[in-house]
Design a protein around this nucleic acid. Structure first.
Lengths: 152, 152
DNA sequence: AGTGAAAGAATCACTTA
DNA sequence: TAAGTGATTCTTTCACT
């Protein structure tokens, strides 16, 4: 992946509707070679998908809650089943296995506190082996981007 | 926003390259009225942008770190300047003002621990008034989606 | 909300360096 | 192996119904 590919990725991370013609101009190529580069970036999985981002508040999902979890089980089988269950919850936007005090961190979206509480109960009853759960509410979204910082 | 719009949004959240024709079929409309709905969703800001999502590991940004912050200042002016500074850092993918023990939570991406440490020093020296900072490393990304769960 | 036409883009076979 | 041209096909967009 050279500098040209990085520039292409940068543009597509900002607006993936940019016509190939315009991207080609930006990297001093003609349409076809530029198009082929984009295709390769997709085939390699560097571009994983092209999506529409919505405004959470406008679809009545203005509340983000971070849920910290501890567990007693740390074996592979448990992790696998945990991952499956958590992934299946549409409310869970992000889930990470963590180093340090907490074993997992989730970002959950909800309409309001009551809706989050319904999710919370589903989580507690649906996932075995949780030894500690702590929820922190986000009051305000200061920054949210999907644009990864590429060197060039 | 009715059920038809929700279906349209659902499709575009998964793949925004889906031809309008195909979306129209899915919601039992012909192309033009469907296209007009999409336009309106964009105008209202419900669709905020269309972007390409990249695979972090493939662009050498496999490390996510959550940074919890406390501050002594809680006035509007401080918040405003904090928001500006934090937003300006390309490494910061997400930043929330929190309720509870910690005042702010950031998700930062980096190439490795050394790169994160460079960011950490920039943050500490570039932002005034931080009284406590704690960094937690994500070992594994279990789920990451931008797809908000719409009712229908 | 629908039809059909015109404009605009993506995609591909083929050519060149 | 990487880039370019031009033709074809697919999509978007819009005037009109």
């Amino acid at each position: 992946m050279d500098k040209t590919d990085q520039t292409i990725l940068k543009i597509l991370q900002q607006d993936c509707t940019t016509p190939v013609q315009q991207i080609a101009d930006a990297v001093n190529l003609s349409v076809t070679p530029c198009w082929k580069r984009i295709r390769k970036l997709e085939e390699k999985g560097i571009i994983r998908q092209r999506v529409a981002l919505l405004e959470p508040a406008q679809v009545d999902l203005g509340v983000s809650v971070f849920v910290h979890l501890k567990t007693q089980r740390h074996d592979d089988a448990w992790l696998k089943s945990f991952a499956e269950r958590v992934t299946a919850f549409d409310e869970v936007m992000e889930c990470y296995r963590m180093a340090g005090e907490w074993d997992y961190l989730l970002r959950v979206v909800a309409k309001d506190i009551a809706a989050f509480d319904r999710f919370y109960k589903k989580l507690i009853s649906g996932v075995e082996g949780l030894s500690d759960v702590s929820s922190s509410f986000a009051m305000e979204e200061i920054k949210y981007t999907t644009q990864l910082p590429l060197s060039s």
